[in-house]
């Protein structure tokens, strides 16, 4: 219930040109359109989930030029000219990537709502640092809320994806 001033009947539109999951996309949207809404509503990529809308839960995480970002905290117009990868583009061919497979192998998900965010963040981390320390893995996971799993199996999945030994 955000308080705003009455909007203009026809808000000015701004063309956003981005590459999403390898494909050029463009659309004209109002300046205040959030990146999360742009991806979900304008482009129909609903795999990006909005859990809080204020940057806390991490469910809406996507990769912006390879960096994990909260799409609910960015305006679409800020990403003009950028390359975006959403959960739909994490796997190039529809088979599970090692990160995704690790979640299934370790039962690292239940309702699946937060899962795309975890997968995107871990994918970004491992692309940048294929052998992250425990500290870095924990920091990455701590940027995301999950309400189902109690995290233990997500930690297992992350360690498998990072090639770390399993904890018992």
């Amino acid at each position: 219930m955000t308080q705003t001033t009455p909007r203009q009947p026809a808000p000015a539109l701004h063309v956003v040109q981005v590459t999403v999951n390898g494909e050029p996309r463009d659309a004209a949207v109002p300046a205040r359109t959030l990146l999360s809404d742009f991806l979900r509503d304008t482009l129909g990529l609903t795999g990006t989930h909005v859990g809080c809308g204020h940057g806390t839960c991490g469910a809406c995480t996507v990769l912006l030029d390879g960096v994990a970002v909260r799409s609910c905290l960015l305006f679409a117009v800020q990403t003009d000219g950028c390359s975006i990868t959403t959960i739909e583009g994490i796997s190039p061919d529809g088979t599970l990537t090692p990160v995704q497979q690790a979640f299934q192998d370790n039962h690292g998900m239940q309702c699946g709502f937060c899962t795309p965010g975890f997968v995107c963040s871990l994918t970004a981390l491992l692309a940048e640092d294929p052998a992250p320390t425990d500290q870095r893995l924990t920091e990455t996971l701590d940027g995301h809320l999950c309400r189902c799993t109690g995290y233990q199996n997500i930690v297992k999945a992350a360690r498998q994806a990072a090639g770390r030994e399993a904890l018992s």
Binding site: I90, L96, F103, D105, G112, V119
Partner: peptide
Amino acid sequence: VKRREDPRLLLGRGRYVADIA
């Protein structure tokens, strides 16, 4: 048994109510 519902959700193919247009 590994969960049969997981691959769909992991690939971003879930369909929650907010996804319905």
